[in-house]
Design a protein around this nucleic acid. Sequence first.
DNA 1: GGCTCGGCTAAGCGCCCGCTCACCGTCGGC
DNA 2: GCCGACGGTGAGCGGGCGCTTAGCCGAGCC
Lengths: 207, 207
Amino acid sequence: MSTAQETTGGDVEPWEEVTPDAARRLLVAAVEAFAERGYHATTTRDIAGRAGMSPAALYIHYKTKEELLHRISRIGHDKALDILRTAARREGTAAERLADAVGSFVRWHAGRRTTARVVQYELDALGPEARAEIVALRRQVDAEVRGIIEDGVASGEFDVPDVQGTTLAVLSLCIDVARWFNVNGPRTPEEVGALYADLVLRMVGAG
Amino acid sequence: MSTAQETTGGDVEPWEEVTPDAARRLLVAAVEAFAERGYHATTTRDIAGRAGMSPAALYIHYKTKEELLHRISRIGHDKALDILRTAARREGTAAERLADAVGSFVRWHAGRRTTARVVQYELDALGPEARAEIVALRRQVDAEVRGIIEDGVASGEFDVPDVQGTTLAVLSLCIDVARWFNVNGPRTPEEVGALYADLVLRMVGAG
DNA sequence: GGCTCGGCTAAGCGCCCGCTCACCGTCGGC
DNA sequence: GCCGACGGTGAGCGGGCGCTTAGCCGAGCC
């Protein structure tokens, strides 16, 4: 189980920061619908129906369908960044911190797959300003992982010829979990997290 | 440049097997539109417009919009599988064959990014029968890569505790290139292919 | 020259989309 | 007991969707 923490599954039901209750139910319904069919293929009638409300109710809590996606994407990226920061800033060697970061990041992408799918794959559906805000968060995500790898190179733990390229590959590997992970498949999020932490340590020459 | 071949960029303009000319123009227009905005967000009017034709012209050559996606997906998967097979069945050590497979597979995903995006990310938009056909092709893709890794383990070249999981990760890494690769970015498809071949050899313990 | 026929277009059908608006039930405050 | 505020609904608007149909045009054949 490597360095499992409560960073992923331990916290209470997510979206608790969204109030009032009806707004949260609509948002959770939208996450499910967007993850299943994609943003453009999801209708406002479908979202409202999943939340047990009439189509018009959506517009009491959100100005447009796009605002729903924006809120989901913002909260999701905040959470993902928080997970990475927690791992990056703990004590330990660079290898321990990288394994922890990859493990918890992967557990989140697998365990909260519906959210992660929307967060990672529906960026292009946002308008220019909203997209710019999210892109800034992604740059911070990149910086956290790159920081750990740079630390490992500086301390001699890692052997990495192309730090930026390797950072990109590590993040790409983790993010793509949201595309293929199957809740009914043979692997648990914990198992995938442990496997990926090992693979990434090998990629940086610390395996 | 490692073991660069003409498997990717060297072949003539793709889609040459699609005839007549008008049908090919529509299909190329559809690939561009689907890659930019996604299948569901693309209208038949947009596709026809890009091909310089009226909306009705599409239905002379294709029964539905979904048939267009099916044809694109089928041809694209055939091409991707062909690239992998060529690398997997050449002569050489398992490490050479794996590096060649990853390098050429990545070069295709980066160099023909628009096609790869549609092929890899619009699978869910297909109906059940079409999707089943494509899923069967993907299993063959998986089998090719797994075969090389198994060869390397058998010969003692590789050290891989979880062959199926590592195969999944290698393919995931390559496929996700189609999501993030930017034609105007700092890296060429060849550079990414070489970087990824190196990273994958490290993942299997042959770096 | 007349005929056929495949490729293509203009027009439009029926449907469903995102979103709005007039209205309504409930509930705390006085 | 009345009132305003809030959260909700039913009906529907304007428009764009995938797709169809009637008919036009030019090339090939006799």
